[in-house]
Amino acid sequence: MRKESIYEAMQNDIMNANISEEDKNKMLKNVMRLKDQKVNIMITGATGCGKSSTINAMFDTEVVKVGVGVDPETMEIEKYELDNLVLWDTPGLGDGKKADNRHAKNIIKKLSEVDENGDALIDLFLVILDGGTRDLGTSYELINSVIIPNLGKGKENRILVAINQADMAMKGRNWDYDKNEPNQQLVNFLEDKVRSVRDRIYEATGVRIEPIYYSAGYKEEGGEQGRPYNLSKLLYYIVKATPSEKRVVYANNINEDAEMWKDDDELLDYGEETRKSIFESITEGASKGADIGGAIGGIFGSIGETIGRGIGTVVGGVIGFIGGLFG
């Protein structure tokens, strides 16, 4: 059975709302505008860092095959379209100076592209580092010399650095496999690594970023998906870095398997914050120009449920969600 899209749910809610026909028409036009929004994310990292595993766990898709073996699967940037979410998957780095130089030129070219409004095509650049290795020289060179200098305005908000394979950061030691979380010694190690990455990038570029660490939950080809750790935190940072009017795009693509989102550092309720962020962008975008005042929360009843079937699995049911947001 085909799942109702977020846009269909919005249209149904608007048509059933107790508001004027004029406001309904304005809101329906706004929904069509939201439906045309696209989010473009470019993803890069050294070969073996877990780009494909991350994409597949977060967005529940197998369009990006998880690499097996030693040879990179793609030599050029690959484009994957998941509804209005567009992922640009760059080749793995570290395949030789000549290949890396070619990849760098392709990245710079893509970063220079603009959309139909003249804005940068790439909304967010996600750099994935391998938490299981100390050799990050190639990645630092790419971040400091290629990515940041070519991001243009607002560069601090358009790059996210994430350290994957946190469970392998100390060769698998100090990871509690039953609880699927690091013990305190490993937490200290990972936080030191985050600070080191942040400081090295700032010293080289003057740009302040806040790296995070996580584990995508490695999946053998044809095997079961391992439980990720801090995947909900990674999604939260991705959504937060996305322009507000575009965040609705994620609602149709987020993995609905609760196991993907249940384990995190619990410093913040990432699922709740992400859901609020998406929901607020939906209501703001759909209500522009419509004189509906405080009625906006009540109009989108099924939207909360639609979003709840995705990231809502992190925080439980959706009862009272709308009331909690709008008083």
Score class of each variant (00 low, 15 high):
9 A>M: 06
227 R>H: 11
64 V>P: 12
191 E>Q: 11
26 K>T: 15
195 R>P: 01
243 P>G: 11
268 L>F: 11
164 N>S: 13
199 D>C: 00
42 M>V: 07
221 E>Y: 04
117 N>E: 12
66 V>C: 11
291 D>K: 02
282 I>V: 15
89 D>R: 01
214 Y>G: 02
97 K>E: 15
67 G>L: 01
30 N>F: 08
234 L>M: 07
65 K>I: 15
91 P>F: 05
244 S>W: 05
280 E>M: 12
36 D>E: 14
123 D>T: 02
268 L>Y: 09
56 N>C: 14
182 P>Y: 07
165 Q>D: 02
167 D>I: 00
85 L>C: 11
169 A>F: 03
240 K>M: 03
15 M>C: 03
150 N>R: 04
277 S>T: 14
166 A>G: 15
83 D>G: 09
120 A>N: 10
78 E>W: 00
105 K>Q: 14
225 Q>M: 12
118 G>T: 14
27 M>W: 12
255 N>V: 10
316 G>R: 03
59 F>I: 09
124 L>C: 04
31 V>Q: 04
53 S>F: 04
144 N>R: 06
29 K>Y: 04
274 T>Q: 04
275 R>W: 07
8 E>V: 04
313 T>P: 00
199 D>T: 06
165 Q>W: 00
21 E>C: 02
279 F>R: 08
312 G>Q: 05
272 E>Y: 14
270 Y>I: 13
128 I>C: 07
119 D>Y: 10
213 Y>V: 10
239 V>S: 01
93 L>K: 02
289 G>R: 01
82 L>R: 02
130 D>I: 05
190 L>K: 00
251 A>W: 00
183 N>H: 06
306 T>F: 12
67 G>C: 11
63 V>S: 09
242 T>S: 05
138 T>L: 08
63 V>A: 14
28 L>M: 13
297 G>I: 11
174 N>Y: 11
168 M>W: 04
217 G>K: 01
195 R>A: 14
246 K>P: 06
118 G>L: 09
41 I>T: 03
108 I>M: 13
290 A>C: 10
260 M>E: 12
143 I>T: 09
164 N>K: 04
203 E>M: 05
115 D>R: 07
63 V>N: 12
250 Y>C: 01
317 G>K: 05
45 G>K: 02
123 D>N: 15
104 A>P: 00
168 M>F: 10
242 T>R: 06
326 F>D: 07
119 D>N: 14
56 N>P: 13
308 G>H: 02
105 K>N: 15
153 K>A: 13
195 R>I: 08
100 D>P: 03
67 G>M: 03
17 A>P: 09
311 I>W: 03
80 Y>H: 14
216 A>F: 09
98 K>P: 10
190 L>I: 08
158 R>D: 01
33 R>N: 15
28 L>F: 07
217 G>N: 08
302 S>V: 10
8 E>C: 00
203 E>W: 00
28 L>G: 13
219 K>T: 15
240 K>L: 04
84 N>F: 10
